[in-house]
Nucleic acid binder design. Structure first.
Length: 427
DNA sequence: AAAGATGATTAGTT
DNA sequence: AACTAATCATCTTT
């Protein structure tokens, strides 16, 4: 009230002292400082005493003020002046752009399905749906439903909290607006001022909401890492799937890179995804190459098995079709084989008929792979050393691995002058 | 519980 | 885009 009266150009409210207001003396404070301070002290004193007044007394004063015959006119003047001065206050305030962090949180909550439209009903429905799906991915979907149940729990908490905040914000806003409206009878309050107040309140509450969103996001992230991180709930493939994969791997040992179609086929057979097939082959290749000796037994086993298959197939029909290898790139295989040097020669002679490289299909390639194993196995010497010397270095190490296998064979041997390349694969 | 196996992830390469 | 090599985190065996 004091402040408003000062703005009104020295109109002194009934509560103020008969002395001149402090700002009048403040202008000439340079000359005499003490009286100015005294005035301020006086005013402070008065302000303090206001709070000491009883409520009834204050109400009575207010009533008296309202009933003053000059009140309407003076009040209008007051409002006018304030209307002018308040503009400068408003000018400093700019509309701030939406908080990028808030937008990020909102986006994430929406993406995680926390704040978006409800899908799949409650947790019970989700669990039921997951249970109904059953089948191959039973345990997987069970975990998933667990995750969704937890997620919907978070979602529920989030929504109730958000609603609570919303409600509190509205209540508080209406309360403040009522107060302001009531006060507007005794002091000038422009609509803009109310608007500003409301926006301040909203900002404060949205800050609280942002905290809620933040913690919700954190909860979702934790939930995700707990349930959806595949590494945490890793399951080994079942034995059958592993056998199928191994069968393919060892029957295509010279070029164990299944084509996209082959991967799909394998994925279907093993009831896993294509990505998992790719992972498996990636792991297998690197681990095989790293320690061939360790995989010798396994390799021999699968080689022998597919050898039997191939033998049966070729003896029964001209179109040899090994069950594990439906199709693979034929030409690439021939390139690889030409790289196998002396061993390839022996295989070729073993096969008997003339080998025409590109003409021969994938089946022959896999048979050749298989036969190479059989040769190394039945070579007569202790298998470890024999296998490493006559089989592995050529296939794997001569060109540093599989990936760049397609290389003209005839020119390879001269380049590796020192024979060290040949023998350094003993590990 | 330690050691080994294994599926998935990641950085870097081609 | 697919691959390798290293690494992680878990599963399995010892």
């Amino acid at each position: 009230r004091e402040r408003d009266s000062q703005r009104a150009g020295g109109l002194v409210s009934p509560l103020s002292s008969p002395k001149p207001p402090f700002f009048l003396s403040a202008t000439d404070r340079s000359s005499e400082e003490k009286p100015g301070c005294q005035d301020i002290g006086d005013i402070l004193q008065q302000i303090m005493t206001i709070t000491d007044q009883s409520l009834d007394e204050a109400q009575a004063r207010k009533h008296a003020l309202n009933c003053h015959r000059m009140k309407p006119a003076l009040f209008n003047v007051l409002c006018e002046i304030k209307e002018k001065t308040v503009l400068s206050i408003r000018g400093a305030q700019e509309e701030e752009p939406p908080d990028p962090q808030l937008m990020r949180l909102d986006n994430m909550l929406l993406a995680e399905g926390v704040s978006g439209p409800e899908k799949g009903g409650g947790s019970a429905a989700a669990a039921a749906a997951a249970a109904a799906s059953g089948g191959a991915g039973a345990d997987n979907s069970a975990e998933h439903s667990d995750y969704r149940a937890k997620l919907s729990q978070i979602r529920q908490i989030y929504h109730t909290e958000l609603e609570k905040y919303e409600q509190a914000c509205n209540e508080f806003t209406t309360h403040v607006m009522n107060l302001l409206r009531e006060q507007s009878r005794t002091r000038p309050i422009s609509p803009k001022e109310i608007e500003r107040m409301v926006s301040i309140i909203h900002r404060k509450f949205s800050a609280i909401q942002m905290q809620l969103k933040q913690s919700t996001c954190e909860a979702v992230m934790i939930l995700r890492s707990r349930f959806l991180d595949a590494r945490r709930k890793r399951r080994n493939f079942n034995k059958q799937a592993t056998e199928i994969l191994n069968e393919y791997f060892y029957s295509h040992l010279s070029n164990p890179y299944p084509s996209e179609e082959a991967k799909e086929e394998l994925a279907k057979k093993c009831a896993i995804t294509v990505a998992q097939v790719s992972n498996w082959f990636g792991n297998k290749r690197i681990r095989y190459k790293k320690n061939i000796g360790k995989f010798q037994e396994e390799a021999n086993m699968y080689a022998a098995r597919t050898a039997v298959n191939a033998a049966n197939a070729s003896s029964h029909g001209s179109q040899a079709n090994s069950p594990s290898t439906p199709n693979s790139a034929g030409s690439a295989g021939s390139f690889n084989m030409s790289n196998s040097g002396d061993l390839f020669m022996s295989v070729q002679s073993l096969n008997g008929d003339s080998y025409q490289g590109a003409q021969v299909g994938a089946n022959v390639q896999s048979q050749v792979d298989t036969l190479r194993h059989v040769i190394s196995q039945t070579g007569g010497y202790s298998e470890g050393l024999t296998a490493n010397q006559m089989y592995s270095p050529q296939g794997i190490n001569a060109n540093g691995g599989w990936q760049d296998a397609p290389t003209p064979s005839s020119v390879t041997s001269p380049t590796e002058g020192p024979g060290s390349v040949h023998s350094d694969t003993s590990n």
